Simulated assay, not measured.
Amino acid sequence: MSGNKSTGRVAVITGASSGIGAATARALAADGYLVALLARRLDRIEAIASEIGNGSIAIQADVTDRDQLVAAARRVQDELGGADVLVNNAGVMLLGPFSAARSEDYRRMVEANLLGAITTTEVFLDQLTGGDGGDLINISSVAGRSARAGNGVYAATKWGINGWSESLRQELLPGVRVTLIEPGVVDTELPSHITDTATREAVQKSYDVAAVKPEEVAEIIAFVLSRPRHLAINEVLIRPADQLG
């Protein structure tokens, strides 16, 4: 943890039911943040919110549904006083050979990974810009820097996140700091969602060999947020030490 305790700052985290999102909720709560956990699986985020305490709240919301996000933003404003930090973490990684048979996978990735982050930010933007200084953390991927066979649409969504983040970084100066986090292999449930069997098995094997823990990524996010307002860490690339690509 950063060791730099916050006082009443509010963090909204999407995809908070597992992986990096859940770990970040725990890390920021330990740093004194009031945390709003957003995810589709209400039972999971309610359990995490109860565990971390400190006034944390669980809000069932799908980032592909703008009405649910608007309702979530209203709750954050009414119950916590508005968001100072938004962590756009929700997403899916549906890898596999490019094929018309996986058109639904492609739609899901674009809607969740790219449009979901854009819509969530748009909905919470007034809260981020309305306080003493906001922070926007966008979770991208190593795939946002280098595409490879079988991850084309996933990479496209992450390249999109990277370009959009840089544009926002310039637009939102000086009131909101924008940070892009680009993890490589992280020990999360993402591989289990892959619909192509051969790809899922191959990816899971690579994850079993070397993976960063979600808590290690969360520690970096907490560190970024703990920096004084005059300092911005705009981009962090994270890999297991022995990951090549």
Results as ranks from 00 to 15, higher is better:
residue 40 R to Q: 08
residue 177 R to S: 01
residue 169 R to N: 04
residue 192 S to E: 14
residue 200 R to H: 06
residue 155 A to S: 15
residue 14 T to D: 08
residue 156 A to D: 06
residue 45 I to T: 07
residue 150 G to W: 12
residue 217 V to F: 05
residue 64 T to C: 10
residue 10 V to T: 09
residue 149 A to I: 09
residue 148 R to E: 09
residue 141 S to Q: 10
residue 105 D to I: 03
residue 132 D to Q: 15
residue 145 R to M: 14
residue 115 L to R: 11
residue 197 T to W: 06
residue 197 T to I: 14
residue 34 L to E: 07
residue 140 S to I: 08
residue 193 H to Y: 11
residue 81 G to I: 09
residue 30 A to T: 07
residue 114 L to F: 14
residue 40 R to S: 03
residue 141 S to M: 10
residue 47 A to N: 11
residue 36 A to F: 08
residue 50 S to K: 13
residue 237 L to E: 12
residue 150 G to I: 07
residue 86 L to G: 02
residue 96 G to D: 12
residue 236 V to E: 06
residue 17 S to P: 09
residue 161 I to T: 03
residue 112 A to V: 15
residue 178 V to F: 02
residue 155 A to R: 13
residue 184 G to V: 05
residue 188 T to R: 10
residue 162 N to R: 15
residue 233 I to R: 03
residue 51 E to I: 06
residue 197 T to Q: 14
residue 102 R to A: 13
residue 23 A to M: 12
residue 105 D to P: 04
residue 7 T to A: 11
residue 35 V to I: 05
residue 26 R to F: 03
residue 35 V to P: 01
residue 238 I to D: 10
residue 134 G to K: 06
residue 57 I to Y: 05
residue 188 T to Y: 06
residue 22 A to S: 14
residue 228 P to G: 04
residue 185 V to P: 00
residue 165 S to F: 05
residue 92 V to H: 04
residue 78 D to T: 07
residue 6 S to W: 10
residue 130 G to M: 06
residue 104 E to I: 12
residue 140 S to H: 10
residue 187 D to H: 01
residue 117 A to R: 03
residue 34 L to P: 00
residue 213 K to Y: 00
residue 178 V to M: 01
residue 120 T to G: 13
residue 127 Q to G: 06
residue 140 S to L: 10
residue 136 L to Y: 02
residue 121 T to I: 03
residue 213 K to H: 05
residue 109 M to C: 03
residue 29 A to G: 13
residue 219 E to N: 12
residue 174 P to E: 08
residue 162 N to M: 08
residue 107 R to L: 08
residue 140 S to Y: 10
residue 137 I to S: 02
residue 188 T to M: 11
residue 46 E to D: 14
residue 168 L to F: 04
residue 91 G to S: 07
residue 97 P to R: 09
residue 211 A to P: 09
residue 39 A to S: 15
residue 199 T to G: 03
residue 238 I to Q: 07
residue 240 P to A: 10
residue 45 I to N: 09
residue 132 D to Y: 04
residue 75 R to N: 09
residue 2 S to F: 04
residue 163 G to R: 13
residue 151 N to K: 07
residue 50 S to N: 11
residue 24 T to H: 02
residue 22 A to V: 12
residue 137 I to P: 02
residue 10 V to P: 01
residue 125 L to Q: 11
residue 82 G to K: 02
residue 219 E to Q: 12
residue 196 D to H: 11
residue 107 R to Q: 11
residue 4 N to K: 13
residue 230 H to E: 14
residue 83 A to E: 01
residue 87 V to H: 01
residue 122 E to L: 08
residue 233 I to D: 02
residue 86 L to I: 05
residue 6 S to K: 08
residue 154 Y to E: 11
residue 60 Q to C: 13
residue 28 L to G: 00
residue 103 S to K: 10
residue 131 G to C: 10
residue 182 E to N: 15
residue 187 D to Y: 00
residue 125 L to C: 06
residue 193 H to M: 13
residue 148 R to C: 01
residue 27 A to T: 11
residue 45 I to Q: 11
residue 157 T to H: 13
residue 241 A to L: 14
residue 18 S to K: 14
residue 126 D to Y: 04
residue 13 I to M: 06
residue 231 L to R: 00
residue 178 V to G: 00
residue 127 Q to R: 04
residue 22 A to F: 11
residue 186 V to S: 06
residue 161 I to F: 07
residue 234 N to L: 01
residue 154 Y to C: 07
residue 238 I to Y: 08
residue 164 W to T: 00
residue 228 P to R: 12
residue 170 Q to I: 11
residue 59 I to E: 14
residue 2 S to P: 03
residue 126 D to E: 15
residue 153 V to D: 07
